[in-house]
């Protein structure tokens, strides 16, 4: 469904990702792991139109979207849950969710989508009129995911959803991610918590210093000694 073809993105003179290629099939949950500063957020932001790519192509069902205006990406069913959530904190939870359904195709189904999000996150149903900035971290993450789901995405991009959340909340969050994946939404997940990410993903890519260093099925990656050492051992200690 999505084909990232030899993409390069840079900030000024510094290249953040170089020659990155990856594919995501229909209804797949693919994760990208890697250390801080490897370019994971740059990659996901480029996919959402938040950052222009220098060269390469982003093909959605064979059509290159990388030359579109930033506000046109979502027309193709791409929605993002960005790093740090980036909610519209001065607006209410309801307004944040409604804004998720801003694109024309999603606007018509707004009421039904809102019900669906409230069913997925019952705690949000009670806080719809609260200011988004007044919510707890976990609830804000729910709003960020809900906002993206309101866009009726075909491809959902999740950037570090577990960042800064308590372990118990992270477990619940990954349950939700599984539920969303099971409902037929294709997902790309960027995650620091490698152990957890490999549990939910059907395939994974390892991004190091802006390049794809390894890829494969989670079981296969887990067996590789360099990955065990660099990611699985360390992440378990860190937590």
């Amino acid at each position: 469904m999505l084909e990232v073809d030899r993409v390069r993105v840079s900030y000024g003179a510094a290249a953040a990702i170089v020659d990155v290629s990856l594919t995501i099939g229909d209804r797949e949950l693919v994760c990208v792991v890697g250390p801080n500063g490897a370019g994971k957020t740059t990659l996901i932001n480029a996919l959402a139109g938040l950052h222009r790519i220098d060269s390469g192509a982003l093909r959605l069902d064979g059509r290159d979207v990388s030359r579109l205006a930033p506000h046109r990406y979502c027309d193709h069913g791409i929605a993002i849950v960005p790093e740090g959530r980036r909610l519209f904190t001065g607006m209410t939870v309801r307004e944040n969710l409604e804004l998720g359904a801003y694109r024309r195709a999603a606007r018509a189904k707004r009421a039904r989508s809102l019900e669906r999000v409230c069913a997925l996150f019952p705690v949000l149903a009670e806080r719809l009129e609260a200011r988004a900035g007044a919510l707890s971290g976990g609830q804000q993450q729910m709003v960020a995911i809900g906002r993206a789901l309101m866009a009726e995405p075909r491809l959902l991009l999740l950037d570090e959803p577990s960042l800064g959340l308590a372990p118990l909340i992270v477990t619940a969050l990954f349950e939700t991610i599984r539920t969303i994946a099971a409902s037929g939404v294709t997902m790309l997940l960027v995650e620091q918590n490698v152990a957890l990410a490999l549990e939910v993903a059907s395939r994974a890519y390892v991004l190091e210093e802006g390049r794809i260093a390894a890829q494969g099925a989670p079981a296969e990656l887990r067996r590789r000694p360099e990955i065990r050492r660099a990611y699985l051992g360390l992440t378990e200690e860190a937590r």
Binding site: H71, R72, A79, E95, R107
Partner: peptide, 24 residues
Amino acid sequence: TDFGKALRASAEDASMAQAFGVNA
């Protein structure tokens, strides 16, 4: 209105509003 909400959203975070289709 959607127009007003989109304006307030872009005032807070224009590129995030754009990601959801707002022509900021």
